[in-house]
Design a protein around this nucleic acid. Structure first.
Lengths: 338, 338
DNA sequence: CTTATTTATGCAATCGATTGCAAAGGTAGT
DNA sequence: ACTACCTTTGCAATCGATTGCATAAATAAG
């Protein structure tokens, strides 16, 4: 079939013996061109297999119709479903999504953000890394008035839109649930204090306890990186305390799973000996035995909404819509582990 | 900080009282420019906060430094880990990755491919949808000599590179394993015949059986879309046969999970009453009870390799490297379910 | 000191589309 | 028939970088 000869508006123009500007306008359905010519041009474009050179147009327009996404890891279900939501919406609006992952490393995140900036994405959706304790790279966007939007893990020092779930309340509900089901000694494996989401989950935990007049037992508060290994280690420490907990609120499902495995190999009954609750509703949580109680975060919806919001902002740069923190409902899912 | 005034090479040029061409060359470390000037220009670029306009450069160069990716669904672990591999490698080479998902719909896939084509990606990595029974949209790339590479699910009628696992052999191994552990009546829940991967898995199953002198029992071969629901229905049909199987090779882990759940609710013991094997090693497979035997597909490695290969092709358009089908080793993982 | 050669820089065209302004053609009003 | 106005189209500049060719400057050779 057709090989290299790439058709331009100039080819169309000379073929039709009209000017390139007319062709351009005709293709864009500009009312300044007569309907008749428009039809002719558009038909010819099809006949000759013309495809617009988006780069040239973008250069002129100063838009790339692209939004950048940075997440800690693409292969974590919560994030991939968020990306799925972003892509689905962006696609309907003709935006492209370019993705990159920070691997939870600040340096990599800085590089990703800088690259997206240099690639002139029209906006960026990001969930920051566990290490992110400064915001210079993010300022690149906010200072230059390029829309930036955080979801889930956000940077509190940057003014911008955010989409989060109510981690505080979720932490509260989880803990309240454990209390209600009769747990007396409730521990918590928390995530890095750098991230608000983990601080909030812990905050909810503390509030629920204090409201119930329960004090946090000695050594009942572990702070970890929430990996499989750290989770196991932390849980092991908890269970070797002189007075081990009978309920543990794990910072995420991964650590809850580690806990479950620890219980299995140490012949501890869940939830009889110790009740467990995780966070995120990873796909495996529903199918392990016993199935894991957890909090469902609407990843897809968050992504969808994020895309919606940032595209709105991209298309109304002048309109001063105030920044907003959108809190999505999360849902406590009680299963066999508690 | 700095607001709108975007700096161009011309600004640098006039500031330094030299020509734009010199600035351009200096920034690209062209040896035709004296080291001294190069240093000066580069420093000035930093001072003035210059950032190259990639669009302008790309327009000239006719490269976008972008590779497009199309997968059925981003939120499936196999695919998200492949994307992760793609992104990791592409990133080291300065390529951007733009993703889109077909949702296993041919129409959506066609649109995605066309969009990527119009966006002038330098190459495309794709795993086709379950419905893809024609290749016109894919010809858009191959006919125009834009590198295209398939991974996992490929289109046999398009000449191109492919990265796959040995589905035939994997299917063979799974079945042989079931035979070896004593199963006499082995069924298979296969995927759409449109896709080679499923045909091959089935082929391996058949070969192993015939080699062992076992014939396929009546109704022992189900062909489905491999979803949760279809899997359950198919498995239910199998188990209600007059002579139900004592070993089932499920086309993927999802259907194997459906089977497992069916067994649970129907008090069938796995693997005593019926042994189960899945395919893909989804994250949940290791943690369900009983844990699922399955075949591990190296998603991340496939993606990494795919990116490596396609970038190589992008950068050597003229060099006629012959197309290749790269077969990656898969690994049978035997767990409790068999 | 002149000519040949290398080194460093600049000019101007180019990539392909968009767009303000000008101009040509057509219609209408008086 | 003349001016006024509207419709339709074209000219040429622009977006910001790259690059072949030409030129200027510096060095080497004779």
């Amino acid at each position: 079939m057709r090989k290299h000869p790439e058709i331009t508006i100039h080819d169309l123009a000379s073929e039709l013996r009209i000017s390139a500007s007319t062709v351009s306008r005709a293709l864009n359905d500009n009312k300044r061109i007569s309907i008749k010519t428009r039809k002719i041009v558009q038909q010819k474009a099809i006949d000759m297999g013309y495809r617009p050179n988006i780069l040239a147009a973008n250069l002129r327009i100063k838009k790339t119709m692209t939004i950048g996404v940075v997440v800690p890891r693409i292969d974590r279900y919560f994030f991939s479903s968020a990306i799925s939501g972003i892509e689905d919406y962006a696609w309907t609006k003709g935006f492209n999504v370019i993705i990159s992952q920070s691997n939870d490393l600040l340096i990599k995140e800085e590089n990703c953000v800088r690259t997206l900036y240099n690639n002139r994405v029209d906006g960026m959706i990001i969930s920051i890394s566990m290490q992110t304790n400064e915001d210079n790279h993010l300022r690149l966007f906010s200072d230059n008035h390029i829309p930036i939007l955080f979801f889930d893990r956000f940077c509190p020092t940057i003014e911008s839109d955010r989409i989060v779930v109510d981690d505080f309340n979720s932490g509260y509900q989880i803990t309240a649930h454990l209390i209600e089901r009769g747990c007396k000694r409730i521990a918590h494996i928390a995530g890095p204090e750098l991230l608000n989401i983990y601080l909030d989950r812990k905050g909810g935990y503390l509030k629920a306890l204090s409201e119930a007049g329960i004090s946090v037992g000695d050594g009942y508060l572990e702070v970890t990186g929430l990996t499989r290994e750290e989770g196991r280690a932390a849980f092991a420490r908890l269970m070797s305390l002189p007075n081990p907990p009978d309920g543990v609120f794990c910072g995420n499902d991964t650590t809850a799973l580690s806990a479950l495995e620890y219980c299995r190999s140490n012949k501890l009954k869940v939830p009889e000996d110790v009740a467990l609750v995780g966070f995120s509703d990873e796909p495996f949580s529903a199918v392990v035995t016993p199935s894991l109680s957890t909090v469902k975060q609407p990843g897809y919806e968050m992504g969808f909404l994020a895309a919606q919001r940032i595209i709105e902002r991209i298309q109304n740069t002048n309109l001063p819509i105030p920044f907003e923190q959108i809190v999505l409902p999360s849902k406590l899912i009680i299963r066999q582990s508690s």
